[in-house]
C-alpha cells in the first residue's frame, strides 16, 4: 500500500487540478434559474424563494427525499437492533435540569422555524432537525418512549410526513391536473400543512435514528 501512496496522491492532485480548471472556466456570471424562480414567486404560495423551490417548484424531490429519510430508518431497524450505548456515567443533575429547560425551548424554536419558513430562512427540515435534537437530548437523560407509544403511534408519526405529502401531491390528479399542482389560492395553506407534518416526522425520524432500533423489538442478544 505504501508504495502506491505517492501515486494515489499524484492522481488525486491531477484530479483536483482538472476539476479546478473546469470550475474556473465557468463564466463569471451565474446563469441559473433565479429569474424563473422570482418570476413565479407570486404563484408559489410562499414568499421565501428557497421554500418555494423545496415545497413547490421542486417539491417532488423533497417528497422523494423524505422517503430517503424514512428508508434510512427502515434500513437500521431491519438490522435488528444495534448494541446498546454504554453511558459512561449516569446523567448528572446538570444534564437533567438542562434538558428540562432546553427541550421546551427547542420545541418553540422548531415551531418558529417552521412558521418563518414561508417568508424567511427556515422551514421543515431545519425545524425537524431542531425537534430531533430535542429527542436526542431526552434520550441522553435516559428517557425512553413509553411502551404503548412505541408501536403504531410511533410508526404513524414516522410516515405521516411522507403520507400527507403524497396525499397533497395526488389531490390534483382526479381533476385532471398534474401531480403536486397546487391551486395558487390554497398553495400557502397546503405547503404549511405539508411542512407541519414533515417537521414532526423528520424530528421523530432523526431521534429514532439516534436510538437505532425498533423499540418494539425484543432486546437483541
Amino acid at each position: 500500500m505504501a508504495g502506491y501512496a505517492w501515486l494515489l496522491r499524484l492522481l488525486l492532485l491531477l484530479l483536483a487540478v482538472g476539476l479546478g480548471y473546469a470550475v474556473l472556466s465557468l463564466p463569471d456570471q451565474a446563469q441559473g434559474l433565479q429569474p424563473d424562480v422570482l418570476g413565479k414567486m407570486d404563484q408559489s404560495g410562499v414568499t421565501h424563494p428557497v421554500t418555494a423551490v423545496l415545497l413547490n417548484f421542486r417539491g417532488y424531490d423533497t417528497l422523494l427525499e423524505m422517503a430517503v429519510l424514512l428508508l434510512a430508518l427502515l434500513g437500521i431497524w431491519s438490522l435488528g437492533g444495534l448494541p446498546e450505548a454504554r453511558p459512561e456515567s449516569e446523567p448528572g443533575p446538570v444534564l437533567g435540569t438542562l434538558t428540562q429547560v432546553l427541550v421546551p425551548v427547542l420545541i418553540v424554536v422548531a415551531g418558529y422555524l417552521l412558521w418563518t419558513g414561508a417568508h424567511a430562512p427556515g422551514g421543515a427540515f431545519q425545524a425537524g432537525a431542531v425537534l430531533g435534537a430535542a429527542g436526542v437530548l431526552l434520550q441522553l437523560t435516559g428517557w425512553r418512549l413509553p411502551r404503548r407509544a412505541a408501536g403504531h403511534p410511533l410508526r404513524i408519526t414516522l410516515v405521516a410526513g411522507v403520507a400527507v405529502f403524497l396525499i397533497v401531491a395526488a389531490l390534483p390528479l382526479p381533476g385532471g391536473r398534474q401531480l403536486l399542482e397546487y391551486d395558487p389560492n390554497y398553495a400557502g395553506v397546503l405547503i404549511l400543512v405539508v411542512e407541519a407534518f414533515a417537521t414532526v416526522s423528520i424530528g421523530v425520524t432523526l431521534a429514532a435514528l439516534f436510538f437505532g432500533a425498533d423499540p418494539t423489538d425484543k432486546a437483541p442478544k
Binding site: L64, V68, L71, L79
Partner: peptide, 30 residues
C-alpha cells in the same frame, strides 16, 4: 421513479433511494 425521470438532480435523489434500499436489503438477514 428513476426510469421515468428526465431531471438530473431528481435522478440523484432516486439513485440514493435505490442505493440505500438495496444496501438495507442486502444486510436484511445479517
Amino acid at each position: 421513479a428513476l426510469f421515468l425521470s428526465a431531471d438530473l438532480f431528481n435522478l440523484y435523489v432516486t439513485l440514493e433511494l435505490v442505493g440505500l434500499s438495496a444496501v438495507a436489503l442486502t444486510a436484511l438477514q445479517g
